[in-house]
Amino acid sequence: MSPQPPNTYPAAHPDARIDQVLHALRTTEAPSGLEQRIAARLAQAAEARTQSAITNPTTFSYVTVILNAVKDPRILLARAPRYWAAAAALTLLIALTTLTLLHRTPSTTARTLPTALTPTPVRGLEGAGLQSRHNAPIRTAALATEGISPSASQPSQTATTSTEQQDPDAIALAETLAPSRPAPPLPLTAQEHLLLAATRPGQPIEIAELDIARAPFLRAAAEARETASINHYAKSLLAPFALADALSPTTFSQPQETSTPAPPPLPNASSN
């Protein structure tokens, strides 16, 4: 048994058992000859790698070498004689990339300008002020990115389209800061004046009269309502007469005869 750790527990105590196991793990000795076996295996692995690189050169990955060289150029510099093809490929790749970047022509595709860069006539002094205040710095900044003075770029706006296409942030900013356009203060037509005058008092009959063609039922309903109100008014006026007629129909129903006073009896007849 391996030497026990010094402790104060009895042998059967759980802590003693834990310490016994941990101590055994702690004092484990490496097997003899471990280093030699590891060294031999490493040498074997290194030789196998060398053999595979010599006998099977087609498996050599230039891409891997190029990627490693991009991460750390010292690798390529140190192994350039060995990886001459990879070095040449990397050089070619860098040259092509540089040429592509240098000879990149700006796109001249026609494109509608964002609202902030296309000044539109705004009626009213306030709207014009807003427009000029917001458009000027954005336009200047957008043009400054491509090295064109604002005055020189006024005639042709196609030059700005390439920059806008390439810079969506500038477009978004310009559209965000674009001024809102209030409604133009046009004079009202006669119908609009009439409509305004009719809607303020809130008379539905007048509103219906404005638009008979589109709402005939409103007109009919208004007329019916008006007729009903007239009838009701007339009835209310004639109501006392109707009541009196009901109470003494003869007085009123029959035609009143001319009441000629009866002739007084003749004195002759009475005397006869």
Binding site: T28, E29, E35, I38, A39, L42
Partner: peptide, 19 residues
């Protein structure tokens, strides 16, 4: 140096794996 690494750390690594 890989050989120095083996000589220095093989025993420690063995104990780690053995635990």
């Amino acid at each position: 140096d890989l050989t120095a690494l083996v000589a220095t750390y093989s025993a420690l690594l063995f104990r780690v794996a053995h635990s």
